[in-house]
Design a protein around this nucleic acid. Structure first.
Length: 555
RNA sequence: GCGCCUGUAGCUCAGUGGAUAGAGCAACUGCCUUCUAAGCAGUGGGCCGUAAGUUCGAUUCUUACCAGGCGCGCCA
């Protein structure tokens, strides 16, 4: 409906343009909003306010002209158009539109909200990509929730989006992990074997050492350390990856692709990427190192690609990795990163440009920090002392649905306060329950109606124009903008918008539920309200899975 | 010092170049013989960090400053 209204106003503006009232080059987009106060109409547009200057008219006068044009050739669903305030165009819709809107939602069913807006563009969303050296942490968990929701939302709106996890299995961090496991292994045999200075202290390293003992037997101790570590390295890596996969699965996050840095290196992808930069004259040698002239593409300083000792810096394989993704046919790359990586953005954008891809190919979404609270008190975490809450720990305290909602409920560039006690509760302060409860209530109405012998097929012939109660029209309005809200969330890469929309929709439903009895003696009204409730059920059932949250039928 | 993010109600956060700046929590007051009260309605609470600029109009855009967070390696 929002679209139809925007089109009607666009047409009106088009006619005014051809009459020369508005200059033809004036911007074309027509914003439509739901007014805060229903007395300002079902929908409103401030378009005249922004166009007034170019037209050389007072906003109000222009609004009157546009309104006049809209009425001239008006959509039968539009009842009247008014101009109010400084120049808002307020549209009031005929009751018939309620019927249209509800029927459209029910007809679309599980496809309500789905669109082809993404036009099949192939998008790669990379997220989490934690080093395979320890358990997943809370920022990883936020990245998992945000990244996975983005992929789901994008696929629902016509993109071909895939999720990807980049495994840093070639760097020296895995070496440190291997050394740590090896040391714990020797210690477990009663030896006084030194633990590496930068080694990983966590208990899981000891567990892995025990597993290694089972796997390889005590003869591992008799091998030269280098040989033992050659066995331990892939073994440790595999354990870590399995652990991380398991943690993610518990959050309903599964990746389409896991790409290994090592495999990229092995097939010469790094050299290939560097050659490409060299061909562009973007590499140079200085002080015994090879540098990428990233300042040429807007980075604040040039970056070393090959160190003095002949090793790559971590960025070189990262460039190769991005080039690899692009080589697989993705035209848009999204990297979801933690707050400590924002400095990474400039060099990576520079690399993409050096490879010849257009501006806007890569989008880096930076997530801000998460502060964990328990009952309003900050949870003390000390990495050094090995005291920190992992993603797994969190799930033991907070149900998956609540965790996922909490992780996406804030804008990505806002710090997130996550109170585990609130998230774990089933009380009104917990927004997840509020939304799920709305869905359960819808289902419960049908269950009750059926049990009491109400003929549910009555819905099919329902006349939803009867839904005149303010809470009913508000509910229909809110539902009708779901596709627009979803698309806005996708364009802004902000799943938080979906979380908020879900909350608002649930609120409209709870108000309706309190004010209006669905099943009553009035057969026609009951039929209309059942259809309305069905539409709500459909909308919520479609949007919760986009956030990886279930829509329970009973609570 | 430089860069990125943030500064809106007691707390956590929405929001927008324009109509009286919103929600949840916390406080207080009402509403269950009726489809789940895990709900609803209401009251109180705001120099939208400070100052200047652009504008008919700024909480929104620009700049400076103040405050908080995070980064700034031939570490990953």
């Amino acid at each position: 409906m929002k679209d139809d209204i925007a089109k009607a106003i666009e047409k009106a503006i088009g006619r005014l343009k051809s009459e020369g009232v508005i200059p033809s080059q004036a911007a074309a987009s027509v914003p439509i909003e739901i007014p805060k106060d229903p007395k300002f109409g079902d929908f409103a547009s401030p378009v005249a306010l922004s166009l007034a200057k170019e037209a050389g008219l007072k906003p109000r006068d222009l609004a009157l002209k546009i309104a006049g044009e809209v009425m001239e050739e008006k959509d039968p669903l539009i009842l009247k158009v008014e101009v109010a305030g400084p120049g808002f165009i307020n549209l009031y819709l005929a009751d018939k539109w309620l019927d249209h809107a509800v029927k459209a939602i029910r007809k679309a069913g599980s496809d309500y909200g789905r669109s082809g807006n993404g036009a099949g563009e192939r998008v790669n969303v990379e997220f989490v990509s934690a080093n395979p050296v320890g358990p997943l942490n809370i920022v990883n968990a936020r990245a998992a929730a945000v990244g996975d929701s983005l992929v789901r939302m994008m696929n629902f709106t016509g993109y071909k989006a895939e999720s990807e996890f980049y495994v840093n299995d070639a760097g020296n961090q895995v070496g440190v992990l291997t050394d740590s496991v090896y040391a714990r292994f020797r210690q477990s045999l009663g030896e006084d074997y030194p633990f590496p200075e930068e080694g990983y202290q966590g208990l899981y390293v000891k567990d892995m050492a025990e597993k290694a003992k089972e796997e390889f037997g005590p003869e591992l101790a008799n091998m030269p350390p280098e040989e033992a570590k050659r066995l331990l390295r892939p073994f440790s890596l595999k354990q870590m990856l399995e652990w991380q996969k398991k943690s993610l699965k518990a959050y309903d996050v599964e990746f389409d692709t896991w790409t290994s840095e090592k495999s990229l290196r092995d097939k010469g992808a790094v050299e290939e990427a560097l050659d490409r930069m060299r061909d562009n004259d973007d590499l140079y040698e200085e002080e015994g190192a090879v540098w990428f002239k990233s300042t040429k593409y807007g980075d604040d300083k040039d970056r070393v690609m090959i160190k003095g000792d002949g090793e790559y810096t971590y960025v070189a394989p990262d460039f190769a990795y991005h080039l690899d993704k692009l080589g697989r046919g993705f035209t848009k790359l999204i990297d979801v990163l933690g707050p400590d990586h924002h400095g990474y953005q400039g060099r990576m954008q520079a690399g993409i440009k050096s490879f010849g891809y257009p501006e806007g190919t890569l989008y880096v979404l930076i997530l801000q920090l998460v502060t964990l609270l328990r009952g309003g008190e900050a949870v003390k975490m000390s990495k050094r002392a090995g005291e920190f809450i992992t993603m797994d720990d969190l799930l033991e305290e907070v149900p998956k649905d609540a965790a996922r909602y909490f992780f996406i409920m804030r804008n990505t560039n806002s710090h997130l306060e996550f109170d585990m006690e609130v998230a774990a509760k089933s009380t009104p302060d917990n927004p997840v329950w509020y939304v799920q409860y709305a869905h359960a209530r819808c289902c419960s109405i049908f269950e009750k109606a059926q049990r009491e012998g109400t003929d549910l097929t009555l819905m099919e012939g329902a006349d939803c124009s009867l839904l005149n109660h303010p809470t009913e029209t508000a509910l229909v309005r809110r539902m009708s903008v779901f596709p627009d809200e979803l698309w806005a969330a996708v364009e802004e890469l902000q799943p938080s918008r979906m979380a908020r929309y879900a909350y608002e929709l649930a609120g409209e439903f709870h108000r309706f539920y309190t004010e209006c009895r669905v099943v009553s003696e009035d057969v026609a009204l009951s039929a209309a309200r059942l259809a309305l409730v069905d539409a709500v059920r459909i909308t919520i059932a479609n949007l919760l899975p986009l956030m990886g949250i279930s829509a329970p039928e009973r609570m």
